[in-house]
Simulated assay, not measured.
Amino acid sequence: MKFSIVIVDDHVLIAKALRSIISNFPKFEVLYECENGKELQQKLTNKKNIPNIILLDISMPVMDGFETAVWLKLHHPDVRIITLSMDNGSDSVIKMIRSGSKGYLLKNTHPVELERALISVMEKGSYYPEWAVNSLFSGLDEQLHGKIEISLSEREKEFLQYTITEMSYKEISQKMFCSPRTVESYRDSLFEKLGMKTRVGLAVYAIKNGLAS
């Protein structure tokens, strides 16, 4: 059984090219294409049209990628979003991740990396190429500045060490000899203390403050 993909991009030629490329990936298939978020909303009223992954452009008429990602996060949280854009600015990367995107690729990405990203998002939950991680470092630097003195428990610091790995929260709980629910409580506590909303943000904080092993 193949994982299903929907392409949301107002550039028809790009959408058709993506469909052609993905047709060569053994684990994936494209269900359909949409030109904006509003058209996607209408499609998703039919349960048969709900995909595993949505490849989402940012700059679109009627309803752009930011609005669409927020709507998807609220109404279809199980659908994984991968941003596919020409915009490599740190503000856009951070905003899309906060809106629910699980990956961020540029439109000049090689098909090999596109397939790798699709597999990673399905198997591990996210995919961020090196340039996107560097962009996050740059964009979050100002947000992280001055927060080193925040009081963290030893268990929270231990949890932060694992945020830079590819382990799932369940696997982290096994490493920390506690329940997954306890690990989630560490995560939520850190989100509140550090003013963050994503694991990526926690990982960047851990690295920049010398908490990563």
Results as ranks from 00 to 15, higher is better:
residue 179 S to Q: 13
residue 206 A to P: 13
residue 113 E to M: 13
residue 170 K to Y: 09
residue 34 C to M: 01
residue 178 C to S: 08
residue 108 N to D: 15
residue 21 I to Q: 08
residue 145 H to S: 15
residue 61 P to M: 07
residue 99 S to M: 00
residue 72 L to Q: 10
residue 195 G to R: 02
residue 55 L to F: 12
residue 13 L to Y: 04
residue 199 R to E: 15
residue 189 S to M: 06
residue 202 L to G: 08
residue 74 L to T: 13
residue 176 M to N: 05
residue 92 S to D: 11
residue 212 A to Q: 13
residue 10 D to A: 02
residue 125 G to I: 01
residue 63 M to G: 08
residue 3 F to L: 03
residue 59 S to Y: 10
residue 162 Y to K: 04
residue 36 N to C: 03
residue 190 L to Y: 09
residue 87 D to T: 08
residue 133 V to A: 11
residue 48 K to V: 03
residue 128 Y to I: 01
residue 208 K to F: 02
residue 160 L to S: 06
residue 12 V to C: 04
residue 36 N to Y: 05
residue 70 V to T: 15
residue 153 S to G: 02
residue 79 V to P: 12
residue 24 N to C: 09
residue 148 I to W: 08
residue 185 S to E: 06
residue 189 S to Q: 08
residue 152 L to A: 06
residue 158 E to H: 01
residue 67 E to N: 11
residue 142 E to F: 10
residue 179 S to H: 11
residue 205 Y to M: 10
residue 201 G to E: 15
residue 144 L to E: 03
residue 143 Q to Y: 12
residue 136 L to H: 04
residue 137 F to Q: 07
residue 187 R to N: 00
residue 202 L to M: 10
residue 17 A to K: 10
residue 60 M to N: 02
residue 70 V to C: 11
residue 155 R to E: 13
residue 201 G to M: 15
residue 68 T to R: 09
residue 205 Y to Q: 12
residue 53 I to S: 08
residue 97 I to E: 10
residue 174 Q to Y: 06
residue 23 S to T: 05
residue 23 S to C: 10
residue 56 L to N: 03
residue 126 S to T: 11
residue 133 V to L: 13
residue 206 A to M: 03
residue 203 A to T: 12
residue 206 A to R: 10
residue 200 V to D: 14
residue 202 L to N: 07
residue 148 I to H: 11
residue 192 E to K: 12
residue 33 E to N: 06
residue 27 K to N: 11
residue 150 I to W: 00
residue 52 N to T: 09
residue 5 I to D: 02
residue 197 K to G: 13
residue 48 K to P: 00
residue 32 Y to L: 11
residue 142 E to K: 13
residue 15 A to G: 07
residue 64 D to N: 14
residue 83 T to F: 01
residue 155 R to W: 01
residue 25 F to G: 02
residue 110 H to D: 13
residue 117 A to I: 00
residue 47 K to Y: 03
residue 188 D to H: 07
